[in-house]
Amino acid sequence: MTMSTLIAERHPSDPLFRADRLPHIWCPGCGIGPAMHAYAQAMVESGIPLARHVCVSGIGCTGRVPGYLNMDSYHTTHGRAIPFAMAIALVKPELEVTVYSGDGDLFAIGGNHFIHAARRNVDINVICINNFNYGMTGGQVGPTTPMGARATTAPFGNYEQPFNLPHLAAATGAVFVARWTSLHLRQLKQAMLRAMKKRGFTFIEVLAPCPVGFGRPNDIGDAMEEMTLYREGCVVDPAAPLDSLDIDLRVKDRPIVLGNFVDVERPVFDPLAMMRPTSEAENNTAVAGKTQEGQ
């Protein structure tokens, strides 16, 4: 057997990506790529035809994800992915709409949209790659930068309380809330599958290494070291109290808690419900082609 026979001509996921858009913009060791692949696999396994999936992003490194996926996708203005996605989900409820964007985009400039979409329980999935900084613009401090972590605009270390994203999502009304890392790709894919099967506002936080923007100023040598940090520092505890999910890298041995924390039912946002005949309104969960699965 020659070496060449070991090299596959095609990767099973090739049809899901736009090879003509390569090389991608992400730095070596970036955690966005593996998390994007988990999303692609989840789409395939979801049983929902790819033609019914839509991916919407804002601006930033993670915002480039829709451009690399060979599917209907939208690269919106900074922070506005959720309103775009909301419009698509309301006009075409048969579509599986996923927002795939970064922490800076979703929780700084676009934070307002997140809390209101969650409050209304709009039928979209929000996947947030959290790399603790604004990566694309050069590693500035953001609303998810852990206390004490350094950034180009926080040379003494961040002194602002960051968001505890799962807690925020649950408190504002999300019906499914999870946190995984780009090391925990199987669990991440399973969480995505659950989110796709579920009606209502779902949220998945994905912790991902940013060796250039976040790792370098914080003495994390490379992406492997940040992945090791995840492997050694993460514990899976779906029953953990939501207010205990803060990430504080200053405290040695303080675990980063992962899991699917919330999976509840709540009426899905349906502004036209009151205009429909009663019998139809009662059946609004059975939108064509997309039925709610039990717990």
């Binding site: 604004y134 500035q140 040379p155 003494f156």
Partner: peptide, 20 residues
């Protein structure tokens, strides 16, 4: 006040360095 966007972000970083 600062919010990152290229190429203005180079100014905000230079100011942060001045302060630090």
């Amino acid at each position: 006040t600062a919010y990152p966007i290229r190429p203005y972000d180079t100014v905000m970083q230079a100011i942060a360095k001045k302060i630090s």
